[in-house]
Design a protein around this nucleic acid. Structure first.
Lengths: 222, 222
DNA sequence: CCGAATCCTGTCCGATACTG
DNA sequence: CAGTATCGGACAGGATTCGG
């Protein structure tokens, strides 16, 4: 483990790339953005990552101060990886980058999103101008993870907790849900694909109207 | 060039990492943020990059729609690499990430910054609260690149053009200048190191008061 | 001289198998 | 469950060379 490859650039941004610029690093951070996870959860949520690479990234990120490792007390002998407050501060940056990335000329649909990726994308894609004065509370149950989504005063807030008094509750696969929100697929179709929608459907429909896929960016120079 | 390594993740952010996540890619973009450059300029401004890697990155970034290649008309037969408008839209994202990175617990000084990195850092580190109602126009001449820096209404604007009517003009090495701005080194010391300051020194001193190094972030969990 | 192609070497990544 | 061990292959780094 001798030679770590570094940019040797005084720029703080470049120095952060020495850590978060490694392959998979930012995706690990994305997966931890809504709360701690176990090694196996991370591996399952990041299809394609090799276990040794995940081990290495978690160690590097811990050394850099982004990730904190915690042992659960017995009898639940599980190891949990969580973000430090500083690591969690990357959230808005990842959101901004996601918003930028959504305009990529070569964006390809068709691949699945993890639960965390889907929840991050809500923050990225939400459009204040389309929300207007809409207010609503949604409960999401996506493969054993619960979220509360609140829209009010032109802002969206996604919290990793079970909703107390949601107007509408959605249970099922996050990719089907995003199909409703972003691709404007009819609720009937989503239901046929296994999405369960309970409560006030109109709130979900209005919520979907807060999102709109951006046009791909042109390749012209500035 | 057969096997390109991809995440195969539906998340737009992850797909953008397929391009800008490659080693050196974001630093190439940083270097182009203030205008087009030639291959050789890029190589000089990115100490440590291998020419074949730079070639590869420029080709990948062009394919992805971030970089546009332009030929200069004869007789100056030079090839220029520029950002597309979409590529330049990454500017605020890089600034935000730089602001985050400046709080890294393992941030190391001592390495030089390129001219572009130094100019980006001005946008990252500028603090509206410290600027107050200060207004000023500075002209910077850093190794044959000219910039106009304008502060007004709590905002900073850095443009890659020669200043028309600057209140103060700074000529020399960007690292010495940043020593004045961030590390609060005395002007006399900076002058002794070769920095030339012409015009109203007080404007430069007040400008420096708009910046303050942040405390390194703690490693505690959220 | 600039931009890029072509070596070769070293490091990192990816996949699978295996262990406490 | 949470990693380690191992190995082939992909990519980065550096020097050199070649075409405009």
């Amino acid at each position: 483990m001798a030679g770590k490859r570094r940019y040797e650039d005084g720029c703080a941004f470049a120095q952060s790339l020495d850590i978060v610029g490694e392959r998979w690093a930012l995706l690990v951070i994305r997966e931890l953005m809504f709360g701690p996870k176990r090694f196996t959860d991370l591996k399952a949520d990041l299809p394609g990552i090799a276990s040794n690479v995940l081990t290495q990234r978690l160690a590097d990120l811990e050394d850099a101060g982004l990730v904190v490792r915690r042992e659960m007390p017995p009898p639940r002998k599980a190891r949990l990886y969580d973000l430090s407050t500083w690591g969690r501060d990357l959230g808005p940056v990842l959101e901004a980058m996601g918003r930028w990335a959504a305009r990529s000329p070569l964006l390809e649909g068709g691949w699945p999103l993890s639960v965390s990726a889907a929840m991050m994308s809500l923050g990225s894609m939400f459009r204040s101008d389309l929300a207007g004065d809409f207010e609503g509370v949604l409960g999401l149950h996506l493969s054993w993870q619960d979220f509360t989504v609140r829209v009010a005063r032109g802002r969206i807030d996604v919290e990793p907790v079970r909703a107390a008094a949601p107007q509408v509750t959605v249970t099922g696969d996050q990719n089907i849900l995003l199909g409703v929100l972003y691709m404007k697929r009819p609720l009937a179709e989503a239901r046929a694909q296994g999405l369960r929608i309970e409560g006030d459907e109109a709130v979900l429909t209005r919520f979907a109207a807060c999102f709109e896929m951006p046009e791909p960016a042109p390749r012209s120079p500035a």
